[in-house]
Design a protein around this nucleic acid. Structure first.
Lengths: 138, 138
DNA sequence: CAGAATCCGATCGGATACTG
DNA sequence: CAGTATCCGATCGGATTCTG
C-alpha cells in the first residue's frame, strides 16, 4: 500500500489515531533514542532526551508500552532498576522514524531560513499596513 | 548522516525544533494529503482531512507556509480562491511522511490489539489490588 | 533510582459569529 | 470561499513534594 492509494485518504481516520501517539514529540524522541541505543534505563533516557520532564517521560513510556512499542523490565533490586527497549513492533516503527530524523537533520537549516524570510516579510507588511496580527499565536 | 551517528543524540536539540512542527498531527496530514493530490483549495483540504476545524487548518497552513513547506497562492477573484501546494522542501518531507503513513496503515491493527491486552491486564491488576490509578490521564 | 501525586499556569483547540 | 476574531472549557505539561 502506498500513498498513491486513493483509499488512503478515506482511511485517514485510522491514521489519525496512530498519529496521536506517533505525532507526539516525546514519543518520536524515545523511539529514536531507543532504536539507537538498544536498552536504556529511565534516567539514561531522561538525560539523553533534551528538555523532557520526568513526568512527561513517564507518561510517554507508559503510552508506548500500552501501544506495544516498548517493553518495560523491572529488576527487583534496591535501588530499583527499570530498563526500556523497543519491541519488535517498535523496531519496525524505528525505520520511518529514522527517516524523519534524518530529514530533520538535513533540512532544519532550510526551515530556519524560511522562517526568517517569512517573519521579515510579515513585519514589513505590518509596518506598512498596521492592522491587528492575524490569528496571533494561539 | 544516519541514526547510528552518535552526534545525533547530542544534536537532538535541533531535531526537537523540527518535531514541534512535524510532530503535529494536522501538519503531517496536510503534507500527506497535498503530497498525494498536488494542489488543493482550502475547503478541499478541510473536507479531505477528517475532523480538522477551520481554525486549526488555517493555523497549520500558516505555520507550514512560514516554514517554507507549503505555498499559498491567492487568486484575486470573487468568490476568493486560494490554492495550496507543497514547495520543493515540502516535497522532500513528503517522502518520510509517506513512510510514516504506510507504517500506520500496516500496523494500526497491532497497536489496537496491544492496547486491548494492556488495558485488560491493567483492569485485572486493579481489581486484584484496588489502588489508585497511576498518573491517570493527565 | 524510578517513579507517584498534586498543584496550577499556559496552551490548545472547538464553537460561534462576523467579513471582504 | 476563505478566512478573522473572540470566548472559553479542556488538556498539556512543568515544578514540586513524597515514597518504596
Amino acid at each position: 500500500m502506498s500513498l498513491t492509494d486513493t483509499s488512503k485518504s478515506a482511511n485517514c481516520l485510522a491514521m489519525s489515531d496512530v498519529l496521536n501517539r506517533i505525532g507526539d514529540k516525546w514519543s518520536v524522541m524515545v523511539v529514536g533514542i531507543l532504536g539507537q541505543n538498544g536498552t536504556l534505563r529511565f534516567n539514561e533516557l531522561k538525560r539523553m532526551i533534551n528538555g523532557v520532564s520526568q513526568r512527561m517521560l513517564t507518561l510517554t513510556l507508559r503510552n508506548l508500552e500500552r501501544d506495544g512499542l516498548v517493553t518495560r523490565t523491572i529488576y527487583p533490586e534496591v535501588p530499583p532498576r527499570v530498563e526500556y527497549s523497543l519491541t519488535e513492533l517498535g523496531k519496525t516503527l524505528q525505520v520511518p522514524i529514522s527517516g524523519l530524523w534524518d530529514w530533520s537533520a538535513e533540512h532544519h537549516g532550510a526551515i530556519i531560513d524560511a522562517r526568517a524570510i517569512y517573519d521579515a516579510r510579515e513585519n514589513a507588511t505590518v509596518a506598512a499596513e498596521p492592522r491587528k496580527a492575524a490569528y496571533a499565536r494561539g
